[in-house]
């Protein structure tokens, strides 16, 4: 027992000494590297101010924030804001809208970008391939304001889509698409696809270029045609990429895309267009109910984080692969 105790105290002392030594070394090095520290410092401070300091603002969800009193002096109200939030029927409506839009986007986005990547990958004329790629990436780089302007133009009652539908006698009278409540979700998914499909296909195309050409040659000697080769070689080869992206994007399931929805929503479709982010904005900025809106924002963040964790767990359990 006593022998044990002495060795323990000894080792503890040793550890303390070792730590002291380390600390000395650390400060010595720090002063040697003070130039490096000094040049990083301003940027570290900027990051702390703009990314970490606002986290402090989360506490106003538990307070009755009064701008005149400031964050720290405003009175605590406990979970009052959350209670009001969960009693508000439009809050549930906005969760529904968020899920509806983001899930449609998620599946349409995956399907369309993988399909486009496969089709581009099959083009053997390099010039045509380059042209398709160049053009399909372009809308990604324009702002949502420009894209919304274009979408509204195309969908307007005398826009090209109405004219085509009228010409082929699919409809008898032009429709103001953007004002039809039930069309709002699919329109968000479709316009998002129009803007992002090319860009999202890049990562799959990159994965496809890594496929060994011999696989294709061997398959065609065995008599596999084009379609067969796509389904037996191309697609299975990019499964790991698809999996990782499916998981990474699962965290965005509560992200319906603020700018797009904000710009394209209008009073006619408000019941289907108010997403959680718009809910936070509407209560927070125009109405100035900062505490209540922050509570809704916290709900959004927490559920998103849970979604990422859950998706990662599921993928680990299913395949032993994890995105993180």
């Amino acid at each position: 027992m006593s022998a044990n105790a002495t060795t323990e105290t000894l080792s503890r002392e040793e550890i303390i000494n070792y730590r002291k030594d380390n600390r000395k070394k650390f400060f010595k090095k720090l002063s040697q590297q003070k130039e490096l520290v000094l040049i990083v410092l301003p940027f570290l401070i900027l990051l702390l101010i703009f990314s970490y300091v606002p986290l402090w603002g989360w506490i106003i969800a538990f307070k009755n924030f009064n701008p005149a009193l400031g964050i720290s002096n405003s009175p605590w109200v406990g979970l009052e804001n959350f209670k009001m939030l969960f009693e508000d029927p439009t809050f549930y409506q906005s969760i529904r809208n968020t899920l509806g839009i983001s899930i449609l986007k998620y599946f349409l986005g995956f399907f369309s970008s993988i399909t486009l990547a496969v089709l581009i990958n099959e083009v053997r004329n390099m010039k045509f391939k380059k042209t398709v790629q160049t053009i399909s990436y372009l809308p990604h780089f324009v702002s949502w304001v420009v894209a919304a302007s274009i979408v509204l133009d195309v969908l307007s009652p005398d826009g090209v889509i109405n004219q085509l539908l009228l010409k082929f006698h699919i409809i008898k009278q032009s429709i103001n698409f953007i004002g039809v409540p039930h069309l709002f979700w699919p329109l968000m998914a479709l316009s998002d696809m129009w803007k992002e499909v090319g860009w999202n296909s890049i990562i799959y195309l990159a994965a496809m270029t890594a496929i060994d050409n011999e696989l294709y040659e061997a398959a065609s000697i065995d008599g596999a045609g084009r379609i067969r080769r796509i389904f037996s070689i191309t697609l299975p080869s990019i499964v790991p990429t698809i999996k990782i992206l499916l998981i990474l994007n699962a965290g965005w399931i509560l992200n319906a895309g603020f700018e797009q929805v904000f710009l394209l929503s209008n009073p006619m479709v408000i019941d289907y267009s108010q997403t959680l982010e718009l809910y936070v904005y509407n209560y927070g900025i125009p109405m100035g109910r900062f505490s209540f809106a922050t509570a809704a924002g916290i709900f959004n963040s927490v559920v998103s984080l849970a979604m990422v964790t859950l998706a990662n767990r599921i993928s680990k359990a299913l395949s032993g692969e994890s995105a993180f």
């Binding site: 986290l55 106003i60 927070g284 924002g297």
Partner: peptide, 19 residues
């Protein structure tokens, strides 16, 4: 670490607005 973690969360609209 400080820089990496900042990528995984955002403070949200209202706290940022108040900041």
């Amino acid at each position: 670490k400080i820089f990496t973690y900042s990528m995984y969360f955002t403070s949200g609209l209202i706290p940022y607005y108040l900041l």
